[in-house]
C-alpha cells in the first residue's frame, strides 16, 4: 500500500514538473542511452526515438520491455509512457529487445543492425541457458561468434589463450565434459579457422541460421493449468501456440499453427483457443494472473500479424530495404576483392 502510494505520488510529482519532461534510460544489447521525454509522450514517441537513434528500420520485431513485480511487460505504443505501471524513479529504465522473432532469419532480417541486435540477444539467451543448446551446436556457434568478433583467424595474432577471457559456452555444456579451458579453445579455434573470409554480418547470420533450429529459439513460455488443473506450459512463437509438459520444453504435446486458429480470447483468467476446424475441441486454460493473460494475448496478436504479413509478400518499404541491402553487400564485396 505504502509503495503504491509512493508510486502514485511519484507519478503526480513527475506530471507536475514545470519542465514537463522526465528522463528514461534505454538499455539495448550493446549500449545504454538516456533521453528526456515529454510527459505527454506515448509509447510510440519514445520507441520511434530509440529506433531512429539506433538506426533501426525493421522496428516491427522490437519493443521496450520493463520489469513489473516478478514478470515483464512491454510498453504499449498507443498509451502514455507514464500511464504504464512502471517504476517512476528517474531515469525510468526500459530494455530495447526483440519481442517477435522471424521464421527465417536470412530471409526476413534485412539490415545489419537488425541482424546484429538479434545475434547479441540470441547469443545471450544461449549462454544464459534460457535456450537449450546441445554441446556440438554450442561449439559451432562459439566459432561463428569468434569469427564475428575477431575477423579471420590469424595464428600469429591469435595465440593460444586468446579466448581465455571470452564467455563462449553455456556452463552446462562445459560441465558435461572432462576438458580443460585450453582443450575447449583448441576445438573452437579449429572451427573458427574454417570460417575464413566471413565478414562480421555473415558470421552473425550463420550463427542465427543455426540458432533458429534450436527447439526453444523464439518461444515465450508461460505456466498454465488446463481445465482439469494439470500444470502445463504454453509456448507462443512465430509459428503458433504450443502446449508442453512442464518437464519437457523442447517437444510440444500439441501445436496450434496460426493459420489453424479461428480465435483466441480470455475473460478474467480463462483463456480459450478456438481452432478453425470446428470438429476439434476448444482448448481452455488458466494462466497465473490477468497481467500474464494480457501479455499472452499481445504476443499472440503480434506473432499472428507477422505470420500473415509474411504470407502476403514484402511491403514496398521492405522491398526497398532489401534492394538497398543487396547493393550495400555487393559494394562491400567489391571493396574486399579490391583490397
Amino acid at each position: 500500500m505504502a509503495r503504491a502510494l509512493a508510486s502514485r505520488m511519484g507519478l503526480s510529482a513527475l506530471k507536475r514538473k514545470q519542465t514537463k519532461s522526465f528522463s528514461v534510460r534505454i538499455v539495448t544489447m550493446d549500449a545504454e542511452m538516456e533521453f528526456s521525454c515529454e510527459v505527454k509522450w506515448k509509447g510510440k514517441d519514445l520507441f520511434d526515438l530509440v529506433c531512429r537513434t539506433v538506426g533501426l528500420r525493421e522496428s516491427w520485431f522490437f519493443g521496450l520491455q520493463y520489469n513489473i513485480k516478478d514478470t515483464v511487460a512491454w510498453l504499449k505504443m498507443d498509451k502514455k509512457v507514464l500511464d504504464h505501471d512502471v517504476c517512476k524513479e528517474e531515469p525510468i529504465t526500459f530494455n530495447f529487445l526483440a519481442k517477435f522473432y522471424p521464421e527465417n532469419a536470412e530471409e526476413e532480417l534485412v539490415q545489419e543492425i537488425t541482424q546484429h541486435l538479434f545475434f547479441l540477444q540470441v547469443k545471450k539467451e544461449i549462454l544464459d541457458e534460457e535456450i537449450y543448446c546441445p554441446p556440438e551446436a554450442s561449439v559451432l556457434l562459439a566459432s561463428y561468434a569468434v569469427q564475428a568478433k575477431y575477423g579471420d583467424y590469424d595464428p600469429t595474432a591469435h595465440k593460444p589463450g586468446f579466448l581465455a577471457r571470452e564467455e563462449l559456452l553455456p556452463k552446462r555444456v562445459i560441465n558435461l565434459y572432462q576438458m580443460t579451458p585450453e582443450m575447449w579453445e583448441e576445438r573452437i579455434a579449429a572451427w573458427y579457422a574454417e570460417h575464413r573470409g566471413r565478414t562480421r554480418d555473415e558470421a552473425e547470420m550463420e550463427y542465427l541460421k543455426i540458432a533458429q533450429d534450436l527447439e526453444m529459439y523464439g518461444v515465450n513460455y508461460f505456466f498454465i493449468r488446463n481445465k482439469k488443473g494439470t500444470s502445463l506450459l504454453l509456448g507462443v512463437d512465430a509459428l503458433g501456440l504450443h502446449i508442453y509438459d512442464p518437464q519437457n520444453k523442447l517437444t510440444p504435446k500439441i501445436s496450434f499453427p496460426w493459420n489453424e486458429i479461428r480465435n483466441i480470447s480470455y475473460s478474467d483468467k480463462e483463456f480459450a483457443i478456438k481452432p478453425l476446424d470446428k470438429k476439434i475441441e476448444v482448448f481452455k486454460f488458466n494462466s497465473s494472473k490477468l497481467r500474464v493473460n494480457k501479455l499472452i494475448l499481445q504476443l499472440c496478436i503480434g506473432n499472428h500479424d507477422l505470420f500473415m504479413r509474411r504470407r502476403r509478400g514484402d511491403s514496398l518499404e521492405v522491398q526497398q530495404m532489401k534492394s538497398q541491402a543487396r547493393e550495400e553487400k555487393a559494394r562491400k564485396q567489391m571493396e574486399r576483392q579490391r583490397l
Binding site: 527465417n104 546441445p134 556440438e136 551446436a137 559451432l140 558435461l176 565434459y177 572432462q178 576438458m179
Partner: peptide, 27 residues
C-alpha cells in the same frame, strides 16, 4: 523449412564425435 541444422549437420556430427571421448560418465 529444410531438415534441422541442414548444411551444418556434418560439422555438428564431427564436433559431437570429437567431444565423445571426454564426456563425463554422468553426462
Amino acid at each position: 523449412a529444410g531438415p534441422k541444422f541442414g548444411p551444418y549437420q556434418k560439422a555438428l556430427r564431427e564436433i559431437r564425435n570429437s567431444l565423445l571421448p571426454f564426456a563425463n560418465e554422468t553426462g
